[in-house]
Design a protein around this nucleic acid. Structure first.
Lengths: 193, 193
DNA sequence: CTTATAGTGAAATGATCGTTTCAAAAATAA
DNA sequence: TTATTTTTGAAACGATCATTTCACTATAAG
């Protein structure tokens, strides 16, 4: 039987995520990844195949961590208002704690690679579908509870919220004033009520 | 007296803009620029100094073209409603005509380089100030004309609109459905009335 | 304890990176 | 025409790129 993988795959992915997040895909070299993960070059290729493949795993890793945060917040919410506010609140915290102004790994990658790498494009399409589905769920519940209006369909509001989140995340790269961001969020959500 | 520059600087900048826009800064090589501009390597360094410096000129070039479009649209507007709708309309057209899904050069660069290059960071800060000032102007006029409400200050609405534009531009990378985008815009602007 | 299997380390692969060098060519002023 | 100035073209710079190679080592089943 073979010698078994000695490193912790999640720890390695976490380290790789940090590098890619800080420098972007094209700005990250294999040497950067070797240094960050403390893995040997050949071990990386052995375990992840290629730089692009490792990056795709990093994206999924990052996405699943976000997904867990979402699930946790949503489980704690009593109604649609709390749910949607919890989501935006989560992003505001991400922004404020992002001391390096790295922005969101997924959004950065979307703008860097969607038009260049088919695998990235399809990841982004799935990511968008997933996000919009989650937001549509919340809006639908809010409309059934008569908390949100029905001026637009849940799907339309979901796209609007998805777009607003991306805007918030981009704005937060340079503006990390909590009052500004909270006010911005309030303005975004006002149209729902 | 010296031999004079034979190439048209604006044409060269336009060609360089296309490459940087398509591939991003880190994804663009000097060879790409040599190929695209039909200039010799040494001529590029002679005229632009470095890759980063050329990119900064490209950014300004791109920004000034956008600025001219804005000025033109604003000059044709009779009131604040027309003005703000013209701005968003301009972005929707940009999105729909962006067949390569490249997104916005400035936004792409913001997410790729703001945390890595101080010169880019300061460009982005000025860009943000300029955009918000323009939007604040429109909102102020709209509020004076009693077309827009005063629930938020013009500055707060300007940040909201700036954020919404970035979101729209990011959303438009994958969603180029005109109905969706127009509806999204309508939802964004509704809060002003 | 052998043997099969796979992770590891270090070096090397050829290609490409951004930038520099320098002689030749071109253009104007004297 | 000659002197001066600057753009060119082509080659070369060392560094770094993503990836491969392969001998070596560690593991666990037989």
């Amino acid at each position: 039987m073979p010698k078994v993988e000695t490193f912790n795959r999640n720890t390695v992915l976490q380290k790789a995520t940090e590098v890619f997040h800080k420098k972007g895909y094209n700005g990250t070299s294999m040497q950067d990844l070797v240094d960050a993960t403390d893995l040997n070059r050949s071990s990386i290729y052995n375990s992840f195949g290629s730089k692009l493949n490792m990056f795709l795993e990093v994206l999924s890793h990052y996405q699943s961590i976000y997904g867990n945060s979402f699930s946790q917040k949503l489980a704690q919410s009593y109604n649609a208002t709390e749910a949607i506010e919890a989501i935006f609140d989560l992003y505001i915290h991400e922004i404020i704690n992002d001391n390096d102004r790295k922005g969101c790994l997924v959004i950065n990658c979307k703008s860097e690679m969607t038009n260049q790498e088919p695998l990235i494009k399809s990841f982004m399409e799935k990511n968008q579908d997933r996000m919009i589905a989650m937001l549509e769920d919340i809006v639908t519940k809010g409309q059934m509870e008569k908390i949100f209006n029905q001026n637009q369909t849940a799907g339309q509001y979901a796209l609007y919220l998805f777009s607003s989140i991306q805007g918030l995340r981009m704005t937060g790269i340079l503006n990390k004033n909590e009052n500004d961001l909270r006010n911005l969020t309030r303005t975004v959500l006002k149209v729902l009520y």
